[in-house]
Simulated scan of single mutants.
Amino acid sequence: MPIAKLFAPAVAALVFSVPVMAQQMGGGPPSIDDQVNQLDEMVDLDEGQKEEISSLMTQMQDEIGAKEQEAQELQQQLGEQVQPDYDEAAIRENAERLGDLTAEMTADAIIMQSQIEGVFTQEQRDQLDEAVAQRQEQMQQMREQMQQQQQQQQGG
């Protein structure tokens, strides 16, 4: 199996889980510098790699940001279109555009992951794969602990 197929989910998990976890903790999304520094701690980037990854992430954030805003507006419009005298054509048009935006953002994210993968050495890819596997295991353990606590509260 090519490394790209193994690696893409790892970078996706890292790039997308970090901002989500930060938002859940109430800190808002981490800055690109924070994300690059986190990668640096995991795989020991050199200065050139840091700059290149930061540039790629900034470019992608700009591109995806506008699409995310449009998607949110479309979702709001679709929500407002739920009424007895609905306009089926408008609903379908908005839903189709929302689907297109989602596909574009997915493609953009995968392209960015591929570009970032090209910045890493093989050794760094291996380190990142290991770090992501550990993070996923920790997340699974946390989920299991939370489920156990909920079961204890419900049963007790």
Rank of each mutant, 00 (worst) to 15 (best):
Q147V: 06
F16M: 15
Q138Y: 03
E93M: 02
A103C: 02
R97N: 00
V15Y: 12
Q134D: 14
M25N: 12
M25Q: 12
A131H: 14
V36G: 00
A109L: 09
I3H: 12
M112A: 04
Q148G: 01
Q76I: 04
A8N: 15
Q122S: 15
E73T: 13
A107H: 10
E130V: 08
Q72M: 10
V132E: 03
I111Q: 10
Q127M: 10
Q81R: 05
A133S: 03
M1R: 06
L45R: 03
Q59D: 14
G79D: 02
M1T: 02
G26F: 02
G155S: 13
Q140I: 07
E96C: 04
E123H: 05
Q77Y: 05
L45F: 00
D126W: 15
L45S: 06
E104V: 05
V11A: 12
R125E: 05
I91W: 04
R97Q: 06
D46P: 02
P19C: 13
A4C: 07
R143K: 15
N94I: 00
D34V: 08
Q59M: 08
A10H: 12
L128Q: 04
G26R: 06
Q113L: 03
T106E: 11
A103D: 01
D62S: 12
L101V: 01
Q141H: 08
E137Q: 15
I32C: 06
K50R: 14
A90V: 08
A10E: 01
D100Y: 01
L101R: 00
Q153W: 13
T102A: 07
G118R: 01
A109N: 14
Q153I: 06
Q134P: 03
E104C: 12
E117N: 10
S114H: 05
E70N: 07
E93S: 06
P84Y: 08
K67C: 03
D108Q: 02
E144Y: 09
F7E: 03
E104N: 02
Q38R: 11
L39K: 03
Q38V: 06
R97I: 10
G27F: 15
L14S: 07
F120R: 04
I3M: 01
S55W: 00
P19S: 13
I110W: 07
A109F: 11
Q147A: 14
V11R: 14
I111K: 11
P30H: 09
